[in-house]
Write a protein that binds this DNA or RNA. Structure first.
Lengths: 188, 188
DNA sequence: CGGGGTCTTGATCTCAATCAACCAATGTGG
DNA sequence: CCACATTGGTTGATTGAGATCAAGACCCCG
């Protein structure tokens, strides 16, 4: 069983993939690499975006209390995850406290993505999930999410985000953005 | 000591009062009545608003982990609070989990206050902290926060919020808003 | 009474939404 | 292998919702 648990204790997601969609086995994950968005299901399109997760954040903790997931978590960039808790593996109080603190901080940051001018918002967003700078292996994939996602997070439109990014990298604000140009996501 | 603890286990706040400003004794509170806003300190005015708390939410849990408060909590409406934890009184895992779930939910709601048209945002806001409807004793004070606060939460301006509220109560959308007209806050 | 805070209201202007093409990359099916 | 559909990104022209600027009313307090 130790072996089986180990085998299932890691996961990878491609851009656009959904963490909780397939499996309903109440597991809680920690995000090791990449960034994800949380969405409320069954809400009118516009106001679905419910939160953001970056390296070290906890996803799906509500399953331990409620027995079902509140949000739907989708990969913004390629992600690696590690099992953090499930019904048989309850986290320690200090770990829970840490998760709580991180959740509040992340909430504040997500809010800040939605005030000020368009350029400032986009800049804040890339700063938030940008630190792929220090990455070792050259990131084959562009570090930025799709424009559609960035638009929803910042409460802007795709057009505006595109214009802003173009201008940013013209001004050098985005260090030679790794050609985040068009290609459909690879589905399973 | 039991008596002392009891004596200090409740607190009340008037509109505009700050929960953590005076006392630095690392305590964690639960909001029993009213609503509060969280702010990041030392941030350029605009993007300070960091979160929202309503009845049942936990405030200041980070003190247990970090030893200092991350946010500053200010009363939007008159508040009553109860001691929830401190250095000597650590909460149970299930309570922590509950706090985490509530924090995430509240974060999502705060985000939703910043998308869509102005009218929709204000409507969502009053719906969120509005349920003073079912209140027993007639609320002497208007249940709504100051326009300044509502403006910052919705990322609108005071002018726009005012215009929106006026129109809402003209259309009956706000059931006879209890004359939320001008009066300076009462400070301590 | 004067000062500082809150709310209201009007006039003007601007930033980003909207509408609409268009290009590039991918995958699909004949 | 090539037409085609689909998805993601870019760009231009126009428009409108809300910001901005400004003034005034009201309330409270020292």
């Amino acid at each position: 069983m130790a072996k089986r648990a180990l085998a299932q204790s890691k996961r990878s997601l491609a851009v656009g993939e959904d963490l909780f969609a397939t499996e309903e086995g109440g597991k809680v994950w920690m995000l090791l690499e990449g960034s994800m968005r949380l969405d409320r299901r069954g809400v009118p399109e516009e106001e679905r975006f419910a939160g953001l997760a970056v390296k070290g954040d906890i996803l799906g903790a509500e399953i331990l209390l409620l027995g079902s997931y509140t949000f739907c978590a989708t990969a913004l960039t390629p992600c690696r995850l590690q099992l953090w808790a499930d019904a048989g593996l309850v986290p320690e109080p200090s770990a829970l406290l840490q998760a709580l603190v991180r959740a509040e901080r992340r909430g504040a940051e997500a809010l800040a993505l939605r005030c000020g001018e368009a350029a400032a918002r986009v800049r804040r967003l890339v700063a938030l999930l940008g630190p792929s700078r220090a990455g070792r292996q050259p990131p084959a994939r562009p570090a930025l999410p799709r424009l559609r996602d960035m638009a929803e997070m910042t409460a802007l439109t795709v057009s505006t985000v595109s214009r802003t990014l173009v201008q940013m990298q013209a001004e050098g604000g985005l260090e030679a953005a790794p050609t985040l140009r068009g290609r459909p996501r690879l589905r399973s």
